[in-house]
């Protein structure tokens, strides 16, 4: 029984009679979860049902990651876990003991924007802004995926590295919906940022 079972912290929670529920019982079971979030180690006691998204928003008060559909369809909760973008809503925090997590707050701050955030401002890559943190976390990771040579449905020849193109960006960003329809400006922002980034590395 590694990980979580009958934690001592349950005793501190009022109104809970038993640590381990039997069938039909819906009492919460909690566990202590240690994560490194935006470079800072955090330990939190969580109901095992807590998604990584809710752990960020409700427990660490990092509300940049948004809850849209809560079913992996909209991408508003996209965050970067151990270097990869995933849907924070479709994974349990307890499954990520020891993981390194980057949310939008870790990418940039109002006085020190991430270059992709700055490009979103320049190119008007949003209207209401609700999907934007997820778009930007996804966008940063997408450009890393292209650089790492990971193919996509839009890649013409699987035996060659993928190219940075509008078709590639659009396909790879299909897990991030924008109800305001800022898509064409998001593609422009990502292209601009990718070109800047490749220029600065050259």
């Amino acid at each position: 029984m590694a990980g979580a079972s009958a934690p001592a912290s349950l005793a501190a929670l009022p109104g809970i009679a038993r640590a381990v529920p039997g069938p039909g019982d819906d009492a919460p079971v909690t566990a202590r979860v240690a994560l490194t979030v935006n470079g800072v180690r955090r330990e939190i006691d969580l109901d095992l049902r807590t998604s990584l998204l809710d752990a960020m928003r409700e427990h660490l008060h990092l509300t940049g990651s948004k809850k849209g559909c809560d079913h992996g369809q909209c991408g508003a909760c996209t965050m970067i876990v151990n270097g990869r973008r995933i849907n924070g809503c479709l994974t349990l925090a307890v499954m990520h003991q020891g993981a390194e997590i980057t949310t939008i707050e870790g990418l940039g701050q109002p006085d020190a924007l991430h270059p992709l955030q700055a490009a979103f401002v320049t190119h008007d890559g949003y209207q209401c802004g609700y999907c934007t943190p997820g778009q930007i976390c996804s966008g940063v990771a997408v450009l890393e995926e292209i650089r790492a040579g990971i193919p996509s449905h839009a890649t013409g020849d699987l035996t060659r590295p993928p190219e940075l193109s509008e078709a590639e960006i659009r396909e790879r960003m299909s897990g991030n919906l924008c109800r305001c329809g800022a898509y064409s400006n998001i593609v422009e922002a990502m292209t601009d940022y990718a070109e800047q980034a490749s220029g600065s590395r050259a």
Binding site: G72, G75, T78, R84, R85, I86, N87, L90, T91, S138, A141, V142, E145, G149, I150, P151, S152, H153, T155, L158, T159, R172, S174, G175
Partner: peptide, 27 residues
């Protein structure tokens, strides 16, 4: 993304890439 899959089992790489999203395929 595996080179051997892309080279020798292209139908598998293509099917995987036709499914879900980047976020979901990572998980």
């Amino acid at each position: 993304a595996d080179d051997r899959v892309r080279r020798d089992y292209g139908v598998l790489a293509r099917a995987l890439l036709a499914g879900a999203t980047g976020q979901l395929r990572n998980q």
